[in-house]
Design a protein around this nucleic acid. Structure first.
Length: 195
DNA sequence: GAGCCGATGGAA
DNA sequence: TCCATCGGCTCG
């Protein structure tokens, strides 16, 4: 049955810019003891490794934090900035440190749970940003390096977007020319896209 | 929408 | 020390 099947690891074996678009409309799922939360991915950003000044792995910078980016595709790269956890999908061939940031999802399952985790906010503000969606879904640093084809954190097929828009990435003003690369993708017109 | 600033952990 | 793939608040 469509929508109930985890994307296999083979899905992640495609060029990063292509995968960033293919992930739009897919369903991100996180299972926790409190329950399951899921949302359709509606906004992504590609980070192209060694030649991308905005990427943590620029010039193949390899640290404890970026280590997982050098591994095979289909694994999470989570990291903490300020007080928030952000989640990326590692992509590219092994040894090529590329990743795709998930910037926004549209809530579809576990709405009560997300409301509780995002107490006091309107539904639109539960998941319309990279730090917000991890909070709403219960994604944390514990999920670092987790293979995305299995519980408790995985991606399923969702729907095929009618239209995909692209533009500059957000929050990377200090990245030279890379700040203007059009590597942000979103489902055209979706109300859960950030900003 | 723009502007300010809090609060955390990895990296140098 | 420094600073970030941000969020929340305030003012307008």
């Amino acid at each position: 049955m469509i929508g109930m099947e985890k994307l296999s690891n083979a899905f992640y074996q495609q060029p990063t810019l292509e995968l960033a678009k293919q992930l739009l409309g897919c369903k991100l799922v996180k299972e926790t003891p409190e329950g399951t939360a899921a949302g359709y991915i509606v906004e992504t950003e590609a980070y192209m490794g060694p030649m991308d000044q905005a990427a943590h792995s620029y010039q193949n910078k390899r640290t404890k934090r970026t280590e997982v980016m050098f591994g095979p595709a289909g694994i999470t790269y989570t990291y903490v900035m300020h007080t928030h956890c952000l989640v990326n999908v590692v992509s590219g061939l092994e040894g090529v440190p590329e990743a795709i940031l998930i910037r926004a999802v549209e809530p579809v399952e576990g709405l009560e749970l997300m409301a509780e985790r995002r107490k006091g906010r309107k539904q639109r503000d539960w998941t319309n940003g990279p730090g917000k969606l991890t909070k709403a879904m219960g994604i944390t640093q514990q999920d670092y390096g987790h293979p995305l084809d299995r519980s408790p954190l995985y991606i399923e097929y969702g729907y095929t977007p009618d239209g995909i828009s692209e533009g500059k990435r957000i929050g990377i003003d200090n990245s030279g020319e890379a700040r203007d690369y059009p590597w942000r993708f979103w489902v055209t017109g979706n109300r859960y896209v950030s900003r």
